[in-house]
Design a protein around this nucleic acid. Structure first.
Lengths: 260, 260
DNA sequence: GTTTGTCACTTTATCTGACAATCCAACATA
DNA sequence: TATGTTGGATTGTCAGATAAAGTGACAAAC
């Protein structure tokens, strides 16, 4: 015979499970505070410590965030949350820059194609702004990296596919964060970067998928070449490039708002 | 001026932060139990309730799992963890089947191409086994869905890109889980499914990227067509297709082992 | 020699009760 | 109107206690 492992959930896990289910079912609507700890004690007939530990699970899962008043309000987990998770997995599973980069290319080219079809005036404006910012920050290497990261995120958003946004955002954050060390080298190719962005923008504005994709690929290849010329080994695990604190800061304070 | 919001972390959040950092730095090695609650109280000079709430955050983040002895041992978060997260985001952000499917195509075709280059004898064996299983289960619609899901996961694993595995797994789970309702309809096209799998397998074995990709796309288009013929509206949010309990079950009990 | 029962020990899960800190909202004051 | 002030609600942390469950070692039984 074949026995499944016996798992007996604890009280706090049950508290979490029930609250999670209620949120996903829409019973506790987004934006509303969850019941107070005392109320939850009543509902579940457990003591406050169990309720609190259950709530901590909710908190970490990103389904609730803190109010000004400390009350926990129901929230749709934003891409930041996925990013944290993705980053942990990637770090501990020794994913290499090459692997990450390979997937990123795929998602970015998809974003280009979709963006060509769905480009809105507003998205165009934002992209245009972004390129202008890049020009203005020509000499600030640190800023360039951030604005570049933003450029790619804007394209993904312009694609108008929420699944793509959720899936790509963590990659973007991680990829760009890990190029911190290579900033100066990349800075030397700022003009190339601006040129590429401009080409991509023009293609997107014209709805020319093929050109947009081609330039996006060129641009990402440039990025890789820049890293390698700066001495980065693309086959090294990402954890070797980026320190935990940098990542943490990036996650807590992302360049622009993702989903929702 | 521009003021950043002031956030004062609580004790239990600090406990979490420090433990997380220690794990990601490799200071607490994977497989080892974390210190006992009493020891952590000593280390951080806080009371046990704070320690426990901090540990709950760790637990939900997937960095520790339970030992037989209840001790929490350090673990690399597996793809299941990302899946939970992704699924929450997708559910609450009203992502549609169409959106999800579009991204899935992209990642699956990438997987095909990479798998062609990296295909190992072992991966081939597993895929071959899988196709045999499909044949054997011809008449069990429920089983087919699961084995199909497994087929795609095996290809992703064969691609040998860990970033791809981490990124695609949640999509796969969600996509296939939401076709639960459509099982019977899909079952009628089992022969097409088997044929497609066989073609893809042959192409992978021969290292023929183009053919593999072509058939993979056909296969995924078939899948979509099947869903639509069964009455699914691809532009509806995923949450409408799949109930939370089904998803939870799938996550807790995935078809085969992902990363790590 | 292997299996089973038992016991001391460790660790976690939950409870009880309490107090301090913080925030809101309403009111009072200038 | 703008700025203190206050009371009540809620959360954060503490202190201490009991129960349940797992570990490991050793003795007894087969």
């Amino acid at each position: 015979m074949k026995g499944r492992p016996i798992v007996i959930p604890t009280s706090y896990q049950e508290v979490f499970r029930q609250l999670e289910a209620a949120i996903l079912r829409g019973e506790l609507p987004i934006g509303e505070p969850i019941p107070t700890e005392a109320a939850l004690c009543d509902m579940f007939k457990v003591k406050r410590s169990s309720v609190r530990e259950g709530i901590r699970l909710l908190e970490q899962s990103g389904l609730v965030t803190r109010n000004a008043a400390r009350r926990l309000v129901v929230t749709a987990p934003d891409t930041r949350r996925s990013s944290e998770n993705f980053i942990r997995s990637v770090t501990l599973n020794q994913v290499t820059l090459e692997e990450l980069w390979r997937v990123e290319i795929e998602l970015e080219t998809l974003a280009c194609r979709l963006a060509c079809q769905n480009m809105s005036a507003e998205s165009l404006d934002r992209l245009s702004d972004n390129i202008q910012q890049t020009r203005d920050s020509r000499d600030d290497a640190k800023a360039i990296i951030r604005i570049d990261m933003d450029f790619h995120r804007l394209i993904t958003q312009a694609a108008g596919n929420k699944a793509l946004t959720i899936a790509r955002d963590p990659l973007g954050i991680l990829l760009y964060a890990s190029t911190d060390f290579v900033i100066t080298r990349l800075a030397q190719s700022t003009e190339r970067l601006i040129a590429a962005h401009q080409r991509i923008f023009d293609a997107l504005a014209a709805g020319d998928e093929q050109t947009a994709v081609t330039w996006m690929k060129k641009h990402l290849n440039d990025f890789k070449r820049g890293c390698i010329m700066a001495g980065a080994d693309f086959n090294q695990p990402i954890a070797d490039f980026v320190d935990h604190d940098t990542l943490a800061a990036l996650i807590r304070n992302p360049p622009n708002q993702g989903l929702p």
